[in-house]
Write a protein that binds this DNA or RNA. Structure first.
Length: 497
RNA sequence: GGUCUCGUGGCCGAGUGGCUAGGCAGAGGUCUGCAAAACCUUUUACGGCGGUUCGAAUCCGCCCGAGACCUCCA
């Protein structure tokens, strides 16, 4: 491939050539969900974007270790001292154990990602599974005087850190401005400064999630888990850290501060941020109440939807935009995506069946050959340009035209030669299936289809076309379906042996 | 208020200093028992006003409009 992969690095605000720290290995960490409620489509978009990144890096031959965490403690409702833990709050609300909440929504999350054909990460660590490591990191930060303990809670001292390092590099914040602009929130007296953030929180007597620590019973702060788990599984310095745009500040900023504070190293080489899904131009989020649940989409059961949309339709829809742009969610757009997706899948079915046919009477048409080679190059150029799936899909549609032409006989395979033919088919299938992760959605009503065959079977019987009858019976058997002639009707059953 | 992003044709959405994005929709044609698909051709364009340039939708400035982050959010 003549051109190299380039990625947009949020830290440097530039597109950079992607060069892993230890090729061919790539370490990638993505902030996963906080499992306190159902994931909505906005969440899905982020995980889908990183799914593509994971798939493409793998496709390029990198050995990727993909770590995506599950946040199951420490994510507070607000930054105030008595800010409630999201999991804990939900547990009280639903009268369940916190770990039941965690399990329930983790299961839901996995079910949803599977539906969208999002690959599982290699490691999926949880915050509660790494309490010891978090405590150790806090101790290290206290030792370096970058953190202070007060009333059983420990805070990161942003001002102290900022004396030698630069807090706010990623999000373009200036500490002084943050101090000036920050509002006085209730219960922040404990902190030395409003910009400080919690590493460990003292658990009040009623708090249900609690662990022993050198500072008493408590629970870890949200930002810490990612620093701890990424360094544990990917090392103090790794290649890619990803997450939604909205995590840039404060979450990722805090992560950098913690890691740099503890190790003296910039933890991440490339920061990648995905943009938001919007509805009527507004960010989709739980708090604004404009979020869609995947299930509502699949059933069409939502006031803003006039029909259901399948998981692959939505996947295709999202891939038609670039991950760093906002994407607006609407019926018209989804409907158009549904058609485009089906068109592509019809091509996939054809491509899998196409065979090369020799024809000595035909000469190779260099123009067509060049065209096909050019389109394939464009596909890779697009994906190499910061994983531009939108552009890649446009090019894949150009490949599709060639495939359809071959299928209808307008283009003879001999005109492009066997080598180019193989390349065309292979690239087309690989990009769609392996890189974009799109798959066929077969008709789910198999029974309905069997019934149509039963009707044909009955008709054949009526006219005593027993060859046909036997043929239908034999062919269905290959699929594990046995026909049964009964007194009143024809039935079917799963073949028992 | 601070920081930042965006504004593309009927819709969605790429892209970019001069070379066809693509999908959906529309128009015409080829094919066709019907229908569909497919293929070919084709119409609508870069928020406004200035500037830089041989040339800008693409760079710069101003204005208008929309949005994000600064508080939980992917």
């Amino acid at each position: 491939m003549q051109n190299q992969l380039r990625v947009y690095n949020s830290l440097t605000k530039k597109k950079e050539i992607f060069e892993p720290i230890n090729p061919p290995f790539v370490g990638m960490y993505v902030c996963g969900p906080t499992v306190y409620s159902d994931v909505h489509l906005g969440n899905v978009r982020t995980f889908l974007s990183f799914d593509i990144i994971y798939r493409y890096l793998t496709h390029l031959g990198y050995k990727v270790r993909y770590v995506r965490n599950i946040t199951d403690v420490g994510h507070l409702e607000s930054d105030a001292d008595e800010g409630e833990d999201k999991i804990s709050k939900k547990a009280k609300l639903e009268n369940m154990e916190p770990m039941e909440i965690v399990q329930k929504y983790s299961n839901d999350f996995h079910r949803v990602t599977a539906k969208f054909n999002i690959l599982d990460p290699n490691i999926e660590p949880s915050a509660t599974g790494h309490i010891q490591e978090q405590i150790k990191m806090i101790e290290k930060l206290i030792e370096k005087e970058l953190a202070y303990e007060i009333n059983g809670s420990v805070y990161f001292d942003v001002l102290k850190y900022n004396e030698t390092e630069k807090y706010g590099m990623l999000s373009g914040r200036v500490v002084e401005e943050l101090m000036a602009g920050s509002r006085e929130l209730d219960g922040q007296e404990e902190k030395r400064n409003t910009v400080d953030f919690a590493l460990w929180k003292n658990a009040g007597p009623l708090h249900i999630m609690r662990w022993e620590s050198p500072w008493g019973t408590g629970f870890p702060g949200w930002h810490l888990e990612c620093s701890v788990m990424s360094s544990k599984y990917l090392g103090e310095r790794f290649d890619i850290h990803g997450g939604g745009m909205d995590l840039k500040f404060p979450h990722h900023e805090c992560e950098i501060a913690q890691s740099v504070g503890a190790t003296g190293k910039q933890p991440v080489k490339y920061w990648l941020h995905t943009n938001m899904l919007t509805v009527n131009g507004q960010k989709m989020s739980k708090s604004t109440g404009n979020s869609f649940l995947p299930e509502e989409l699949f059933t069409g059961n939502h006031e803003l939807l006039n029909e259901p949309y399948s998981p692959m339709t939505v996947r295709f829809f999202m891939l038609q935009s670039h991950y760093s742009s906002t994407l607006d969610f609407s019926n018209d757009a989804l409907k158009a995506a549904a058609k485009g997706y089906k068109k592509m899948m019809n091509g996939l079915v054809l491509a899998k069946d196409l065979k090369y046919t020799n024809d000595d009477s035909l000469e190779i048409n260099p123009k067509t050959v060049n065209q096909i080679n050019g389109i394939i190059d464009n596909c890779y150029r697009a994906l190499n340009d910061d994983f531009n799936t939108a552009q890649a899909i446009a090019q894949i549609f150009n490949l599709l035209k060639k495939i359809n032409s071959i299928s209808t006989g307008n283009l003879k395979t001999a005109e492009i030669g066997e080598e180019v033919f193989d390349k065309l088919i292979h690239t087309f299938i690989t990009l769609i299936v392996d890189v974009l992760g799109l798959k066929e959605e077969k008709p789910s009503d198999v029974e309905g289809i069997i019934n149509i065959i039963l009707d044909l079977y009955k008709q054949a019987k009526q006219v005593k076309d027993y060859d046909k009858v036997d043929e239908i019976r034999r062919k269905l058997k290959q699929y594990g379906v046995t026909l049964k002639d009964m007194k009143e009707k024809v039935g079917w059953a799963y073949e028992e042996q």
